[in-house]
Simulated assay, not measured.
Amino acid sequence: MRNLELFAGAGGLAMGMSRAGFEQAAVIERDRAACSTFRINQRHHMSLVEDWPIFEMDAKDFDYDPYKGHIDLISGGPPCQPFSMGGKHKSHNDDRDMFPLAIKAVRDVHPKAFIFENVRGLTRKSFSNYLAYILLQLQHPEISRNDDEEIYDHQIRLEKEHTASRMAPTYNVIYNVINAADFGIPQKRERVFFVGFRSDLGISWSFPEPTHSSDVLSYEKFVTRQYWDEHRLFNREQISSEAIQALVRRLEAKCTHPRRRWRTVRDALVGLPDPQDRMAPLVANHVFTPGARAYPGHTGSRLDEPAKTLKAGQHGVPGGENMFVQDCGGVRYFTIREAARMQTFPDNYTFHGSWSESMRQLGNAVPVQLAEVMAVSIAAALRATVGNY
């Protein structure tokens, strides 16, 4: 199966697609540093990305015509600044809104399916009208906006066509907010995913069931003490007996769907030396960055919980959540390698650029493991429906 990746960034989503068996037909990214990251890893023969055809260009300038009818899946994360909690909240009035371009790619290529990722902020009430407009366009990408047509008029036209009995959607589209921690990523990262299948394929699909649980993490901390034993630590946290009883009742009620514990920062950092240790230079991208400090609203991630959402270092919060609280009580920045582990990139994947530049790439990325979970599920649906796979 062939995939076309838009707005590839650091490659997290595309790497998940590759792990699930998709062949990359084109990987499009205009950011020079991100493309340098790809090329460095290709020169190092990093297997997941070695054969990717990289197009360092704006996706609006890409020629989609040769790919029409030859692509199974389009994936991508349209730039999220218009909808970010830290952004200016301009949605469709923001020239960084790339959803129209993503929809154009679907219209031009006509893939069997697509998956797009964005920040949870897009689902806020203040963006509800634009969210409805995005969904209508994804369902009917062939009904394009005319050059002289206002967005509001285009939305009305889409609504009329959508409700007309003669007009079945070209794509069946659903969306959901996913917490990466619920799928084994050591980070509380909530993002909205849009998944669509061409309606003529008759595919029945739903989002994958979570595999990990905060309650199981609490159970292994406060009931069995297994978490602390694994890390050879004394139990550092306590909760009341009433809280333990309530926790056990919740888990007993969910016993038909057993899950594993949320992975923590401490879990993810196992095997990495302290970046100030003499062994640290042997690990790629594992360099200490001084100057971390806590301030109101940005106190760092706790070691024994999944990390807070990594930031791209924009919107006036440089560093921000890109640090954690050490056992000694002080805070320090994640190294690039540590942050890459929070995003489940392989240790042999090297990032190009300074700490801030690499953190920007990582903060904008889709966790590789989460991308793989989604891609495996989509691939299974396609294979079950189309007999020539």
Rank of each mutant, 00 (worst) to 15 (best):
E5V: 02
F7I: 02
A8G: 14
A10G: 13
A20C: 01
F22W: 05
Q24D: 07
T37I: 06
Q42T: 06
H45G: 04
M46Y: 11
L48R: 13
V49I: 12
W52T: 01
W52D: 07
P53Q: 13
I54D: 04
D58I: 00
Y64W: 11
K68A: 09
H70F: 14
I71F: 04
D72F: 05
S75L: 05
G76Y: 03
Q81H: 11
M85E: 10
M85N: 15
G86H: 12
G86Q: 14
D94T: 03
D94H: 12
P100F: 04
K104G: 06
D108P: 11
V109G: 01
H110D: 15
H110T: 15
K112R: 09
A113S: 12
R124M: 12
I134V: 13
Q155F: 13
K160I: 14
H162L: 12
A168Y: 09
V173F: 09
V177S: 11
I178C: 04
A180K: 06
A181Q: 08
D182I: 01
F183H: 09
V192P: 00
V192E: 03
R198A: 12
F207Q: 01
F222E: 14
Q226T: 06
H231N: 04
A246C: 08
A246W: 07
V248P: 11
K254T: 03
R259Y: 04
R261Q: 06
L269T: 02
V270I: 14
D274N: 11
Q276P: 08
M279D: 13
A294I: 08
H298W: 08
R302N: 13
V317S: 10
G330P: 05
G330L: 07
Y333P: 06
I336M: 00
E338T: 06
E338F: 02
M342E: 00
Q343Y: 03
P346L: 06
N348G: 07
H352K: 10
S358N: 02
Q361L: 12
G363A: 01
G363F: 01
A365R: 00
Q369D: 05
A380N: 11
A380F: 00
A384N: 10
N388E: 15
